[in-house]
Simulated scan of single mutants.
Amino acid sequence: MNDRDDAAAFFGKVTASTTHELQNVLAIIKENAGLMEDFIQMGPDNLPDLLERVTRCLGKIKEQSYRGVDLTSGLNGFAHTTDRLLAPVNIYEIAKRLIFLTKRVFLQKGQKIVLIDCKNPPSFETDPVLFQKILWHSLECLVEIPEQKSDIRVTIVNSDAGKGIDLCFENPTLDTAYFNRQLQESAKWMDIQTICKEMNLTPSPLAQAPMGIRIMVERTLSIQ
């Protein structure tokens, strides 16, 4: 099984998380629609604040509708990354979408992923599916390290030294030797190294603060 075939499991996890969020959106809309129906049936004689109650329900429905649009738009864009084996990838935008769609997964594990804003993000040609899989595995690697519950900060690297992405603990409490040992023993880290080698990307541990993983684009690739 090649890396793209194996990516089906990754797509399944992201899709399951997103559709669960969509179910929550629909449940909230349904609940508030039901409340409005009850309020209207009771009428203003029994509910002097009827208009206020209905307005609150409408506000919640509107809020969840926008949330649902964001989720479906993100999921649609995520699904279309399978369209081409090689395509231009904006590192910031693809990371932003993946973090948004998988927010629930990592919050359930007690960790928040924070993407730092980038005004001039680099793009390069690569396999979008496998690049997202690398980001996913990198986040999983960090989240699964025992005794480290710091939020994870994701920063786009765009300098003369190179282009890429850093995924680091915001407040690391681990010593360097322990972090390196945990990373080297991780099956996901081995997968990251294998996939990166095929894609002309360079993964490296960041053992000093901020502690984490760096993925760099090799200069032989087309970078914008």
Rank of each mutant, 00 (worst) to 15 (best):
N2T: 12
N2M: 08
R4Y: 02
D5V: 09
D6H: 06
F10C: 09
F11Y: 15
K13F: 05
K13N: 09
A16W: 05
N24C: 04
L26Y: 05
L26D: 02
L26K: 08
A27R: 07
I28F: 00
M36P: 04
D38G: 09
F39V: 10
F39K: 03
M42S: 15
M42R: 12
D45S: 13
N46K: 15
L47E: 15
L50I: 13
R53K: 15
L58T: 10
K60D: 07
I61Q: 06
E63S: 13
R67K: 14
S73F: 02
N76V: 06
G77W: 14
L85M: 11
P88V: 07
Y92Q: 04
I94V: 15
K96M: 12
L98E: 13
I99G: 01
I99V: 15
F100D: 10
L101A: 10
T102F: 01
K103E: 12
K103F: 03
L107T: 05
L107M: 10
L107H: 05
Q108F: 00
G110T: 04
P121F: 11
D127V: 07
P128D: 09
P128S: 11
L135P: 01
L135T: 02
W136A: 02
H137I: 05
H137D: 15
L139K: 05
L139P: 02
L139S: 02
P146H: 08
P146K: 08
E147H: 11
S150K: 09
D151I: 06
I152L: 13
V154H: 03
G162V: 03
I165R: 01
L167R: 01
N171F: 11
T173K: 13
T173N: 13
L174K: 12
A177R: 08
Q182Y: 06
L183M: 11
E185P: 01
E185H: 09
T194V: 10
K197M: 03
P205A: 10
A207E: 14
A209K: 08
A209E: 14
A209V: 13
M211T: 15
I213R: 00
I215T: 06
M216A: 07
I223G: 07
Q224L: 10
